[in-house]
Design a protein around this nucleic acid. Structure first.
Lengths: 193, 193
DNA sequence: CTGAATTTTCAGAAAGTTCTGAAAATTGCA
DNA sequence: TGCAATTTTCAGAACTTTCTGAAAATTCAG
């Protein structure tokens, strides 16, 4: 590795974190390297920069492509495959959230749903099922929120984040204002333009 | 294992997922077992139920306690340690979020901050630092949101989740209402990109 | 077509992690 | 105190994941 100190530190850290995030060390390092690189890199440059085997780079790049975290790029007059990370850092976050949900949440949700369909045979199973029901409800609330929010464009998402917990205060205030002006009615959803 | 079929299925699934979530198989299984159990279990009961070694149970329980995902409980007139998961499923979620943030986000944030303090020596480092700055800003926005929201009581948190993306519509509506009462000003932000 | 450049695959080596059994330490009762 | 019940520790066995080198496959210019 003959990288600038700053890049090196970042790459190594990302490798470490990679393990905690369920992507492996090499994959994390390659991602980090591409993320800070001012231009597309080809496999051999990555080999050179990280001091790992060519085959490892090849396999890790496949994995990153599968996760949509890097994309392949061809340079004119060069036969080799080059790679970059998407520019938009928010997009990276979205991708990551989506992939992790697919791998880490959806399977559990579907197992829970199946188990909740079953008739509990004993008191013990009845209790277990009730507990599973709680967990299912909770995960479903979270994923519904996520599905709802993930479609927002970046500006709105940023607004939402900036607002944070203040939203609930706003909601309460709005409720009161609405309550003042109107007799109570069941509210129907308005579709958005 | 001589568990009810439903419990067994859940326990095994959670074990599998455990690996994807960075906690290991046994830890996942023990957690799942305690989660659906109608009463506190002691180590030997867990050994019996899951068919794993006593020492493994002991170590895994330590880990779960460190994560605050199970708590120790003493039954009157019994010398053994018993274990339960906290009842409130939301609390479990909060704990999990907090622990994962500590392990998976905070270290990165602090490395990024350090690297951003440095003077870039080359053009390459300048570019890398700009990129790291983007990542830092993004993670910080997320953690700020999280810090803000995590203090909400469960009812408000549920409201917030239920509201989801509709919040931004509400915000825009509120902006307009507020705007009516005030002198017009040029807007910096364009709606709907 | 040929063959050099490049990428991919895969068996097994290396490294990392999880799990066990045996032994040590702790606890609290008599 | 002594002792049985219980929990903890830890070296190394078993298992899993990651990484490599060598070989196969693909690509494309001539």
């Amino acid at each position: 590795m003959k990288l600038p100190a700053m890049v090196q530190a970042f790459v190594l850290h990302f490798g470490e974190m990679g393990s905690r995030w369920g992507i492996n060390r090499t994959v994390g390092q390659i991602y980090a390297l591409l993320f800070v690189s001012p231009r597309p890199l080809c496999a051999d440059e990555i080999v050179e920069a990280l001091g790992i085997s060519r085959s490892n780079v090849s396999m890790s790049l496949r994995e990153l492509q599968a996760w949509n975290l890097v994309v392949l790029k061809h340079l004119p007059g060069d036969r080799r495959d080059f790679f970059v990370t998407p520019d938009d850092t928010w997009q990276i976050l979205r991708t990551l959230a989506e992939e992790r949900k697919k791998r880490e949440v959806d399977p559990t949700l579907s197992v829970l749903r199946e188990l909740l369909m079953q008739e509990p045979a004993t008191e013990e199973e009845r209790h277990a099922q009730a507990r599973l029901g709680e967990m299912h409800a909770l995960i479903e609330q979270l994923t519904n929120w996520y599905e709802d929010v993930k479609g927002l464009d970046t500006a709105r998402l940023a607004t939402l984040l900036a607002m944070g917990a203040k939203v609930t205060r706003l909601l309460e205030a709005t409720d009161k204002v609405v309550a003042l002006g109107r007799p109570r009615r069941p509210r129907t959803e308005k579709p958005r333009g």
